[in-house]
């Protein structure tokens, strides 16, 4: 076990390329043997195929097509998942909604990682006043429960962004809002991990050595320390995607999420409560899809954690 950890250090400081390869292979092998992680990966691939492949069979126009004569229809051959309050096909909406939900998950997690790593690295590496300032800030953000912060921020940023055009689609500006507020309210945990890693790594011999040969601080951070903290970052990012998808669902459920007609799995659940008994198909399908995608990402994250960090016990 120790040997592997040493291997990581050695390989990433750029000495033994062959070891690096075999390390990667080892991680892959460990990951592959992790059945849950593999199941998660397969499930996730299926879900991605559902959302993006499905788009080949139904058009977005169809997903937004309203037909008030067909409202609140239960699942049928024509509408396998039923229709909503204005007669839109729920199956088609879960396909396009899934794309947005996944997009939100990925972009929010990206923001989370960027902010978290930046804050953690700066605090951990430079220490001193910067460290305590940043950590106080992190603590403050941690102290307010995320959902409260999200709700207040969702109101603050409401409609502050214009609609955006991406991949030939027009997305309501509220998608950007949701991505940003989820990103900037979820980085604190990662920042703490990264800071802790930096604190311990910056005292290590190879860093001290880098200092003595006159490498600049930024280069040390980027080239020497960061690569060694990549494992927890990957894990946190993976789980971050799942959490972002969940957060989006929570905000949407409380009515402050992405605005129609852009569908997301979250905002399809928006008015679900009124139809808990009369039209359960309106909330069951998007709800199940959320559970499935979060579940598979959690499996994946769990597997990655085990594969990347050989010391964990499962």
């Amino acid at each position: 076990m120790e040997a592997t950890a040493e291997g990581v250090v050695a390989s990433l400081s750029g000495e033994l390329n062959t070891v690096a390869l075999s390390l990667r292979q080892m991680i892959w092998r460990r990951f592959r043997r992790h059945r849950m992680a593999m199941a998660g990966a397969v499930m996730l691939i299926l879900l991605v195929a559902y959302c993006f492949g499905g788009a080949l069979f139904v058009s977005e126009d169809y997903a937004n097509f309203t037909d008030t004569k067909q409202r609140l229809q239960p699942p049928s051959r024509e509408h396998p998942f039923g229709t909503d309050t204005v007669g839109r096909d729920i199956l088609a909406r879960t396909i396009y909604g899934g794309q947005i939900s996944m997009l939100i998950g990925l972009s929010a997690a990206t923001i989370e990682v960027v902010v978290g790593v930046l804050v953690g690295a700066l605090a951990g590496y430079y220490g001193g006043i910067l460290d305590s300032l940043l950590m106080r800030f992190t603590e403050a953000m941690f102290t307010i429960p995320q959902l409260f912060l999200l709700l207040v921020m969702a109101k603050f940023f409401a409609n502050k962004f214009p609609a955006i055009h991406i991949l030939g689609r027009t997305l309501s500006g509220s998608v950007v809002v949701i991505v940003i507020i989820i990103g900037i309210t979820s980085w604190m945990y990662l920042a703490r991990i990264v800071r802790a890693d930096f604190l311990s790594l910056k005292e290590r011999e190879f860093i001290v050595a880098a200092h003595t040969v006159g490498t600049r601080n930024l280069a040390i951070i980027a080239r020497h320390i960061l690569p060694n903290t990549v494992a927890p970052i990957i894990v946190a990012a993976t789980l971050g995607v799942a959490n972002a998808i969940l957060s989006e669902a929570y905000i949407s459920f409380l009515g402050l999420g992405v605005q129609p007609p852009t569908a997301t799995w979250g905002n399809m659940l928006d008015r679900a409560y009124n139809y808990v008994a009369t039209a359960p198909w309106m909330w069951i399908f998007p709800g199940l899809l959320i559970v499935l995608v979060v579940l598979s990402i959690n499996f994946l994250g769990d597997g990655l954690r085990d594969a990347l960090d050989p010391t964990t016990v499962t």
């Binding site: 849950m36 459920f253 659940l269 808990v276 709800g287 559970v291 979060v294 959690n298 499996f299």
Partner: peptide, 16 residues
Amino acid sequence: FVGYSMPIFFIALLSI
């Protein structure tokens, strides 16, 4: 694992 992946409101709606 399933439970951990569920939004609270989904459990609530299902249980209702």
